[in-house]
Amino acid sequence: MARNGVRVVLDPEGIKEVLRGPEVRAQLDAVAEEMVALIRARGLRTRDGRPLPVEIIAEDSTDRAAVTVAIPHPAGVGMEARHGVLRQAAQAAGLTVIGLDPHRKARTQSRKKRRKKRKR
């Protein structure tokens, strides 16, 4: 890529190395721990009175460092649907959350149609 006489060459292997590096992993772990603390602070409980279980799962099989914060309990789906437990914790931890928007597919399709009309 050249702009104003400056040429930038991306190094895919170097980018992979950074994304798999300990600094990125530490940052992800910190955000995941913050999310877990925020969820536990809400004091949500399952029907049997136990605290809602929340866990962090390290994703080592991807091309970059990744973690998943999960509620490994059948009540987890209902808690997320009813209370937005994971979504709210992610937002409070500073993440941008793009959830399931039922209208998103329709908007995307509309954009594609408009682009096709412009090309004609």
Score class of each variant (00 low, 15 high):
Ala2Pro: 00
Ala2Thr: 09
Glu55Arg: 15
Ala65Gln: 00
Thr68Lys: 12
Val54Pro: 11
Ser61Leu: 09
Arg111Met: 09
Met79Val: 11
Asp63Ser: 07
Leu44Pro: 03
Lys16Leu: 10
Gly5Phe: 00
Ala92Asn: 11
Glu23Tyr: 11
Arg120Trp: 00
Ile15Lys: 02
Arg120Ala: 13
Arg111Ile: 03
Ile57Phe: 06
Pro53Lys: 07
Lys117Tyr: 07
Glu33Cys: 10
Pro51Gln: 10
Lys113Ser: 13
Gly43Leu: 04
Gly78Gln: 03
Lys113Asp: 14
Ala92Gly: 12
Arg3Thr: 07
Met79Ile: 06
Arg50Ser: 12
Gly14Gln: 00
Ala32Phe: 01
Leu10Asn: 00
Glu33Trp: 01
Ala90Arg: 13
Lys16Val: 05
Val77Lys: 07
Val8Gln: 05
Asp29Pro: 03
Arg47Thr: 08
Lys16Gly: 11
Arg47Asn: 07
Glu23Gln: 13
Asp11Gln: 09
Val67Lys: 07
Val67Ser: 02
Ala37His: 12
Asp11Cys: 06
Met79Trp: 05
Arg107Trp: 08
Arg7Cys: 04
Ile57Ser: 08
Ala92Pro: 09
Val18Arg: 13
Leu28Pro: 03
Leu38Tyr: 11
Arg64Pro: 01
Ala30His: 07
Pro51Val: 03
Arg118Ile: 05
Val9Asn: 04
Ser110Lys: 14
Arg87Gly: 12
Val18Tyr: 04
Thr46Val: 03
Ala75Arg: 07
Ala89Cys: 14
Arg45Phe: 04
Ile39Gly: 10
Ala30Ser: 15
Leu38Gln: 13
Arg111Trp: 08
Gly14Ser: 01
Arg104His: 15
Gly76Trp: 03
Val8Gly: 03
Arg45Met: 05
Ile15Ala: 07
Pro72Tyr: 00
Arg50Asp: 05
Leu38Ser: 10
Ala70Trp: 01
Gln109Pro: 00
Arg82Asn: 13
Ser110Glu: 15
Thr62Asp: 02
Gly78Ile: 05
Ala90Gln: 12
Gln27Lys: 14
Arg7Ala: 08
Arg111Thr: 06
His103Ser: 15
Lys113Thr: 14
Asp60Thr: 14
Met1Ser: 13
Gln91Val: 14
Ile57Asp: 08
Ile57Met: 04
Pro12Gly: 03
Arg104Lys: 14
Ala93Gly: 10
Ala41Ser: 09
Val6His: 01
Glu80Pro: 07
Ile56Gln: 10
Thr96Met: 08
Arg114Ala: 13
Asp63Lys: 09
Ala89Leu: 12
Val77Cys: 06
Val6Pro: 00
Arg20Lys: 15
Pro51Phe: 09
Arg107Tyr: 07
Val36Gln: 13
Arg107Gly: 09
Val54Tyr: 05
Ala66Trp: 02
